[in-house]
Design a protein around this nucleic acid. Structure first.
Lengths: 206, 206
DNA sequence: GTCTATAGTCGGATAGAC
DNA sequence: GTCTATCCGACTATAGAC
């Protein structure tokens, strides 16, 4: 990795990665060309090939960077999860922040694009493992004081929750004004509340 | 609509729509060009523009066609749903059939592509309403004999289930060999079973 | 490391013959 | 309705000056 100077200016690689993410978010995968990225970031198109070799390699690196950043950010929050309600609340907050940052939108765009390229698909899945693990951890915390813990396979549930989150993001972006994500999170919050109240009555402590 | 001849040969519009869906499934959105569609279907590229005006218009029409077909097909099954377990089983079957047909993969590809085009996004969302309604109906059937019915808002739950399904499809396509969809459906089946056994004990009949 | 310029390819779309 | 031929713009990627 290149040394970071003590200036406020990010180095070129970082600027390129950030412009790539921004383009992916605003223009979608199909609109994320070397020219579009360079125009958005205000640098020369040829720099992308000098620094990353190809647009595809840049996008993979950009996904790695944003995944690491986001997972680190939410892992702290996940460690504090003590109930299903907490878990829903984190998900809600992540969604809300994504309306601005588009970090998850970037994931759905890259996943859809990688669906027809086995190598890219495998690479994406490897990197997405961090997200699933994040949810698994949060889920373990959420179930710690719940008799349901013995009955819910955390891996599968984490996978399913990630899937739902991606799907909500995909649908919400189609027409943000008609997004029903808020109501969905409210519903899940109510369900979590219900599960916490009712389950102890019917399940014995393990 | 053009009259259907009494031959086994589908008319040209149909052939084009089918080639477009096949291309979308095999090559992804980025690879779905007029030339690729024509090559796959064995017809002339110019026919796409003669019959549909543009590639984008063709894809929208293709989505309409496949959605209507799939929703009609599964609406019959949805009407028979009498429990949460039935609902999970339908979802599992749809997923299994999608491994072959790719009908849902097409939806995720078109949704991701439409994310950066507000007009296309709204059109996609309108047409996706049929899928949400399908799940809503199945859910009503699943909850009919369950005290949970009074507590679960069917619209939100239907939306969430659709989202999860799309997400599972998106993730599964990245590397079909590493797909965890089967385990996820098994987990949901167990949860449905559990809900059916336990909830009546703790919720009064409404 | 960053720039300009350009080669080479592929895409949407149309004109016009049949 | 279907074909051939083609225009033209946009793309990735590279060569080479600075």
């Amino acid at each position: 990795m290149t040394e970071r100077k003590k200036t406020n200016e990010p180095d070129t690689r970082t600027r390129i990665v950030e412009a790539a993410l921004e383009t992916l978010r605003e223009e979608g995968f199909a609109g994320t060309t070397a020219r579009a990225i360079a125009a958005r970031g205000g640098f020369n198109q040829a720099l992308i090939f000098y620094h990353f070799g190809s647009v595809a390699a840049l996008l993979l690196e950009a996904f790695r960077a944003t995944s690491e950043e986001q997972v680190a950010k939410y892992n702290a929050a996940a460690a504090e999860v003590g109930s299903l309600s907490d878990l829903v609340e984190i998900a809600r907050r992540l969604h809300e922040e994504d309306l601005e940052s588009g970090a998850v939108t970037v994931v759905t765009q890259l996943m859809a694009a990688a669906a027809s390229d086995p190598d890219a698909g495998r690479a994406m899945l490897d990197r997405f493992e961090g997200w699933i693990g994040l949810v698994e951890n949060a889920l373990r915390g959420a179930l710690a004081s719940n008799p349901l813990a013995a009955l819910v396979p955390v891996r599968e549930a984490g996978y399913a929750i990630c899937a739902m989150f991606l799907g909500i993001e995909l649908m919400s972006r189609l027409d943000p004004e008609r997004s029903e994500a808020d109501q969905v999170f409210a519903m899940m919050s109510a369900m979590a509340q219900l599960a916490q109240e009712l389950l102890p009555k019917v399940l014995p402590e393990s």
